[in-house]
Nucleic acid binder design. Structure first.
Lengths: 196, 196
DNA sequence: TTTAATTAATTTACAGTGTAAATATTACAG
DNA sequence: CTGTAATATTTACACTGTAAATTAATTAAA
């Protein structure tokens, strides 16, 4: 007697297209301009559809974030593992910065828009971990091959933090003083790999 | 015949107390929870008072930002210029991280909350510049004393970016993998100053 | 084929937002 | 007092997220 429930794939399709529309709005304008009603209008459904398949607006953005984190992870995973390991590390850094540079909205979403209670979105935590994993593995390789010495966790974070720092200063328009990212970044990499 | 206009100091007093109330709300909750009506209620004035002495809500936040940037600059300026210059640089880094760590809300406001059209707020640009100036001067000292070699702009940005990167990853809760900021930061400084 | 059941989806409603426009209040010069 | 000009408040509007009420749709049983 009951009406047929939606299959999981049908639900996934809706969630996916909802997220896609949401992200396009976010890219065109900004965070504040993304409204539940606006997204629904793009999809041609009622506003409340969102609340059937998402918890709330924050849940939508958590999904957007998870998707983008996974895409960043994929980008890093696709970097060829050349030898020596230091070259691989450098290529990872380049790929990371390139992702941020070519998709600034995505990068801002990942690191520069506050999300309260990250931990209640396990998919998001998982996607974050996937991104970190690549950098950590590369650092371990470089240590094991003897190219650098030191604690793995420390080295990985130092490397990551430096790149992220430069990228986010750039995206926050803080790189004044006649210093552009494209000049600073290669020089920074050279410096980091100079003597070890 | 006209009613007495407010003096500039009276206007300044209002703007200051309005900003103070706004920042307290921002600290207690978050960006979204700061509303023009809410601030006005704290001050006991009507909501529209804000619009006489501020352009709009964004203008209020630009002021909050400028105030905090100036405070960061002051913190850095107060760091004693010890010798050798490398020690001074290290102390600046510590002070910078300490500011971010003890006042995470302020730091987030400075770097991690998007503000469109920074350039139309000259006071904000000025306060940002004041902060940068200290770091740049210290780097120049270290170069002139021969403690480090290289391009001044590059070195200053590399140093700044690394610290900022670690701080902001920490505030974004991205330092998992059993690595805390308090462990990573001193080790990072040691590494940066090891061989130059 | 009608009917009852049950889920999906929409509509309505509410409290709250930023802020423009209309209104009221105040204080001085004549 | 009265006109004037500045200050301050009130009202109003178009939005927002989302809870609650309602309608629509689809199935299985009678």
């Amino acid at each position: 007697m009951p009406r047929k429930s939606l299959t999981q794939t049908e639900i996934d399709i809706f969630r996916t297209s909802f997220c896609k529309a949401a992200y396009e709005l976010y890219e065109q304008k900004d965070y504040q301009a993304v409204t539940m009603r606006g997204i629904a209008k793009v999809l041609g459904c009622s506003s409340m559809m969102a609340y059937r398949y998402f918890e709330n607006k924050e849940d939508v953005f958590a999904s957007l974030r998870a998707i983008r984190f996974d895409r960043l992870a994929q980008t890093l995973e696709e970097v060829a593992e050349t030898l020596p390991p230091m070259e691989y590390l450098r290529d990872l850094g380049k790929a990371y910065a390139s992702f941020a540079h070519t998709q600034p909205h995505a990068y801002r979403l990942l690191y520069m828009i506050p999300i309260p209670q990250v931990k209640i979105y396990p998919e998001l935590v998982k996607a974050q971990g996937r991104t970190q994993k690549v950098l950590f593995a590369a650092t371990r390789q470089a240590i094991e091959s003897g190219d650098i010495q030191g604690d793995q966790v420390l080295l990985a974070h130092t490397y990551w933090a430096s790149i992220h720092g430069l990228v986010s200063l750039d995206l926050a328009n803080q790189l004044t003083q006649g210093a552009s990212f494209n000049e600073l970044f290669p020089a920074m990499l050279n410096r980091m790999f100079k003597n070890d």
